[in-house]
C-alpha cells in the first residue's frame, strides 16, 4: 500500500452468531484481506439502530458494513 492511495476506514457491525463467527473462521483459515475494517460485535444485526450508521459517518468512517 502506498500513502497516496485512498485507504477507506470501514466500520463493521457483525452479528455474534454468523458474521462475527465467519470473521473468526477467516482468521482460523488465515484468509488474508485488507486491514481497513474495524468490527463492533452485536448479538444480532436486529440491534442495528440507523443512528449507529449516521454516528459512524459523523465520526469520520468512510464506509459501514453490516453483516448478519
Amino acid at each position: 500500500m502506498t500513502s497516496d492511495k485512498f485507504e477507506p476506514r470501514i466500520l463493521g457491525f457483525l452479528c455474534n452468531w454468523c458474521c462475527y463467527a465467519a470473521a473468526d473462521s477467516a482468521g482460523v483459515a488465515r484468509f488474508q484481506y485488507p486491514p481497513n475494517i474495524r468490527a463492533i460485535r452485536v448479538m444480532c444485526t436486529g440491534r442495528m439502530d440507523p443512528l449507529f450508521i449516521i454516528d459512524a459517518f459523523c465520526a469520520g468512517t468512510d464506509g459501514v458494513f453490516v453483516g448478519g
Partner: peptide
C-alpha cells in the same frame, strides 16, 4: 488475533495500527 494478526500477516504495521 482472528480479526487482525491472522488475517493481516503481510501488513504488520497496519495490523498494529488496527
Amino acid at each position: 488475533r482472528d480479526h487482525c494478526s491472522w488475517v493481516h500477516a503481510i501488513f504488520p504495521e497496519k495490523a498494529t495500527e488496527k
